[in-house]
Simulated scan of single mutants.
Amino acid sequence: MKLSRFTAFSCSFLLAGVVALTGASAAQANEQVQAVDYVALGDSYSSGVGAGSYDGSSCKRSSKAYPALWAAKSSPASFKFAACSGARTGDVNNSQLSSLSSATDLVSITVGGNDAGFADVMTTCVLQGESACISRVNQARAYVDSTLPAQLDSVYDGIRAKAPSARVVVLGYPRFYKIGGTCSVGLSDKSRSAINSAADYLNTATAKRAADHGFAYADVAGSFTGHEICTPSPWLHSLNWGNIGESYHPTAAGQSGGYLPVFTSAA
């Protein structure tokens, strides 16, 4: 018989208490955690673009992405890796939600950055200078206000309809730049600050929609602090003309050190 969500997702200290009170073995307690059917949805930050070790598909799913790392560590009963590079909210609705079912216990997702025009924002900022950068960032913020909430609602409603009993963890995006950091060329600090502010703005809107649907929101900005672009040990790729698709995405260290611990705590 399938375990309840409460049993599957009890915190470790509660599991330890159950072990102590019932005499159950640590292995039996671990089996309760492992009886989880997990589905990873979302865009390139969940598929693992930038981390390498891809599966060969156009979705560029990486074995070093946080969903794959969590599954390897936790050995869930089942794991479906549906996240795909470039995915927008409509792509999740049309192509990824079919991975869910009433048996799904745990769902993770990052989505919204592509809808808000993340790639175009960064292209504009890199190629067209400070004034154009700030103008494009403001356009993205306006989109987050006017259009994105309904798009996120559509995805979140779809998740709940397909997986009515699942714990859903919505993860945000990191800030990209350390202001006043080690970068001596490239964007101005004013442009970098605008980009960071836009990431925060998107995260705030996403967290609000997640909370209104009863989903957990996992903020990764703190875990990336000290590892932004323009720090000595960045966990994000800067502009890479040789592999443009990986630019401004987490490295393997960003997935394992930035995303994985936050997701593990929220799951």
Rank of each mutant, 00 (worst) to 15 (best):
D212H: 02
F13A: 14
S46R: 06
A35E: 10
A163K: 03
S238L: 13
Y217M: 05
G186V: 10
G56P: 07
N93W: 00
S131V: 13
W70F: 15
D105H: 09
G258E: 04
V92I: 08
Y143F: 15
L148R: 05
P250K: 02
M1V: 14
V36L: 10
Q255T: 03
E228P: 03
D105P: 03
A132D: 11
T22I: 12
A266K: 01
S47G: 10
F79P: 12
F215G: 03
V49F: 03
A205Y: 00
A103L: 08
S10D: 13
G48S: 06
L3H: 07
G90F: 07
E228Y: 00
G258F: 01
Q151S: 13
T104V: 04
S99R: 11
S12M: 11
G158Q: 02
L171V: 13
S46K: 04
N203P: 12
T123W: 11
Y143S: 11
P234H: 02
M1S: 13
A83R: 11
Y38S: 08
S74P: 08
R61C: 04
S58L: 14
L106I: 08
S95M: 09
L148F: 06
N30L: 14
G172Q: 04
S256R: 12
G56V: 10
A266V: 00
D55T: 03
A140S: 15
R175A: 07
I244G: 11
C133F: 05
S154D: 11
D105G: 06
V220Y: 00
G257I: 05
G112E: 10
A116W: 03
G180S: 12
I179T: 09
T231E: 08
A77Y: 05
A68T: 11
G214Q: 04
G226K: 02
T89W: 00
D105Q: 08
F263Q: 06
D189C: 08
V107F: 05
Q255S: 06
S58G: 13
A252G: 01
S25N: 05
L148E: 08
L14K: 14
S63H: 09
A216F: 01
R5H: 09
Y248S: 07
S78R: 01
V107G: 04
N243S: 10
Y177G: 13
N138D: 12
C133W: 08
F13M: 13
G254W: 00
T251C: 02
W70Y: 15
K190D: 10
Q255H: 12
G258N: 02
S193R: 15
D219G: 01
A71E: 12
F224R: 02
S197C: 00
G242H: 03
Y143M: 12
G86R: 02
C125K: 06
C59G: 07
